[in-house]
Structure formats: C-alpha cells, structure tokens
Design a protein around this nucleic acid. Structure first.
Lengths: 221, 221
DNA sequence: ATACTTAGTGTTCATTTTACACTTAGTATA
DNA sequence: TATACTAAGTGTAAAATGAACACTAAGTAT
C-alpha cells in the first residue's frame, strides 16, 4: 500500500467458481464450454470479471446464480491464482471460490441435448482451459480435508435424508468406505442432527428414519 | 472468464504481508507507518502493488525483502480482501500473505530512534490503516489453528534451540500452557527433530540439549 | 406366507491423550 | 569447596477415544 497508483497497469481480476455436487455416487464439478479463443471449445470453470463496486463475494454469488440458477448455498473463498501467463491474452488474476450444491436442488435439464454446461467427476477430467484443472485439484483437496474436521457436507445434502445417504456422501468425497455403526454413533454424537419423525419408505426393505440438520451453521471439530 | 475484457475498469491489485515473529514471549506483527493520505501516520501492513509480469508469490517475496531484509522464510497466501470501500481512494483488492520470521534472524535496529517500522503484539494493536486489523485477526486465527496440526512453528525458530524454547513458542502462539513431559514426548515422537550433540550452557542450571529440525519441510499431522 | 433388502443397534480391544512429581547437571555464591 | 539455586530431563497410570466386528428388525415384493 505504499506505492503510487498505476491504474492502467492493473491486471484484470476475475472470480472462478468450483461448484461441487454429488450425483451417481461421484463428486462432480460444474464446467462450462468456452465459445471463444483462447481454449475455444474447452471446458472451463464458470467465472467472470469483477465489477467495479462489487465485492469479491458478491461477484462469486452473481456467477453462481447465473450458471446454476441457485442461491443460498455454501460458498467460501479458496485461493487466488496469479501466475503471469495463466491467461495467454493478458494479465488476469482470479479469485477462486468453492460452492456446494445438493444435486436435488439443481434445476434438471429438460433433455439430453448437447449444452454448454456439464457436470463431470473430479477424478476423470479432460483437458481444461487455463489453469482450471489445477484450481479444481486444489479445491478437491481442500474439500476432502475439510470434510474430516467439519460438517461442511451439509452443503451437499438435501433438507431431509437417511443416515445411509449421509454416510454415502462422506464416502463419495473421501473416496473410502466407512463403518456403518461407528459412522452413526459419531454423527449422532455431534448433536447436530435431529430426527424428523418421518420415514422414507423407498425400496423393498425396512424404512429409514429421515434426519435433518438442526442448523445450517458450519462447525469445526 | 466469459465476460469481455474491460481493462480500464480493473481494480488495483496489491499484496499485503502479515509478518509474524515471537519476541519477549509475545506474538508480534510487523507494521509500517504510513507517510501519506489516507490514514497518514497510522500503522499499516507492509504491502505494495502487484507488478505486471510478477506473480503474486513473487510480489509478496519482494515486499518481504524490502521491509525485513530477510528472504528464505515460511510464507503462504492467506486470503484475498476485496470490499469495494476498503480503500477510500479507489477500488483496490489485496491478496494477503502470512510470513514467519525467527526474531534472531531479523537485523536488529541500531538505536531506539523513532522509525517507520515496528513490531507490535497482535493482541494489543492500535487503530490501523484500511482493513488491516481485520486481515491481521484472520491471519492470527489461521496461524493459531495451523500450529495445532502442523509443524509450522519451524518458521519461527532459530536453527538450533532447546526443547523448552520450542515449547515456549507454542505457548506464545496458542496463548496457553502445555505440559512439559507430554510436549516433549509428542515432539520427539514426530521424528522431525534431531539432537545436535551441542548443549546450551546459558544460565545457572543444568545445560539443555540443542535440537534442530531434520528438514524445513512443513508437515501436516 | 416367504424371501428379500436395507435399517438399526453394543461391546470389546487397542490406541491415544492426559495428569502428575521427582532427580539431574550444571552455574553462582558464600 | 560446599551449598544453594535453577531449569533440564524423565515414566506411569488412568481416562478417553477410535477401530473392529455380526446379528435382528421392519418393511416391500412376489
């Protein structure tokens, strides 16, 4: 903050969103197809330039709404990427955000026609535009770490759910199996869940109690 | 990344450094006195504008060297602050970094004359320029958290040290007392320390074995 | 009525964490 | 040179936590 202003030399500033969901037992990330050079036709993270007068968080929310049609989701700033050559056209630094959306909350596409938006499993990504794969990898490692010391998975669950669904969510993210009894004990011991009283009668088997979170607040253990 | 370039509307981009050291059993942060409006005369974080062609990390290192005269220290990106009004003059977003410097490695000021640089304890800060107090508070909470699940304190220790000094370092940062025997057991159990063979004969008491880190690598537990 | 499927539940053992007090090896001083 | 002083250095027992493990319950479908 001690240097003189040299406004016209300023880099461009964007926000890019790593929007996660879990579907078909896979952790997936939202990608949009670029329709211009550079990386024309490549998948990339949804993002956009920061507007003057707009906070970083506001810009991230704006992009989130534009692309997902959803607001009111868990979102946090991830990291700021600023290698000089990360955009081949000119200097652009990007502030990356993580967002979590329950699959059930997403407006489902009407048909299977090719669109410029997709959800791909994080462990099988094609070549992406810019440094977006690096950004996603960092986001995935942050998410995987955070799952184990917080209740951040809240952001990916529907309002009501079976404990087995919650367990499955954890297993998808950390990519490992958990012991059912220990998992239930631990979850109920947090005191963050409550029974809804309702039961889920799906399937030819004993119905499951539906649970929900007492609060949407994120807690660190 | 889907919007058009509007280069001349770009916000300014700075890096600001929260440089920590521990001295006199207190966690302290480096501050520089502003010599211009706004906040003329207030203490502020060392920082500067990002140069075109310079990566964020490089800019942070440049500022670090300018102000501390030290390189080769632990540094990590903290968070990017971008509220529209955080700089009253114009739109500036700042990428904040944390750096750790052992007190012993700092070039000591020759005299006690008033300078434009100081180290103040993080828990007793005066009013600071911009949103710098908020940035410091966030940095302190990050540091305090990270101390408990990594060996990040390496960054604050001199090359060789007594175990009691290491313990004291932990205690200063987390602001709590630790049990001596448990602390030693835990530290030695990590396998990251080695005896130097040398002993520290300071003081009228049994001399202490001097230890050092096997590697400067940061490890998460 | 029977088969099928997921829901739901406790205990034991191993490991980790915590609490806690005395002896040792020097330096300083009388 | 004997004594006092100070921080260094060490082990164990109890408590808490984490990990492994298998059967019964309650529905739906045939």
């Amino acid at each position: 903050m001690n240097t003189k202003y040299i406004g016209f030399e300023s880099p461009g500033v964007t926000v890019d969103l790593v929007i996660f969901t879990v579907n078909e037992d896979q952790l997936k990330v939202m990608l949009v197809r670029r329709a211009e050079s550079p990386f024309d036709g490549f998948w990339s993270l949804p993002g956009g330039f920061l507007k003057i007068g707009e906070s970083l968080d506001a810009a991230a929310h704006r992009v989130l709404c534009e692309k997902s049609g959803v607001d009111d989701v868990y979102m946090e700033q991830l990291y700021t990427f600023g290698e000089p050559k990360r955009d081949p056209r000119s200097r652009v630094i990007t502030v990356a955000y993580i967002a979590l959306i329950p699959w059930q909350h997403l407006p489902q596409p009407e048909s299977t026609k090719v669109t410029d938006l997709t959800w791909l499993p994080v462990d099988h990504l094609p070549k992406l535009a810019f440094d977006h794969k690096e950004i996603i990898n960092y986001a995935v490692s942050r998410l995987r770490a955070k799952v184990s010391y917080s209740n951040i998975v809240y952001g990916l669950m529907p309002k009501q759910f079976r404990l087995s669904e919650l367990q499955s969510m954890y297993e998808c993210i950390i990519n490992d199996k958990l012991d059912k009894r220990n998992f239930r004990k631990r979850m109920l011991a947090t005191g963050l869940l409550k029974e809804t009283g309702k039961k889920d009668h799906a399937g030819a088997h004993r119905p499951a109690m539906l649970y929900q979170f007492k609060s949407k607040e994120i807690v660190f253990f």
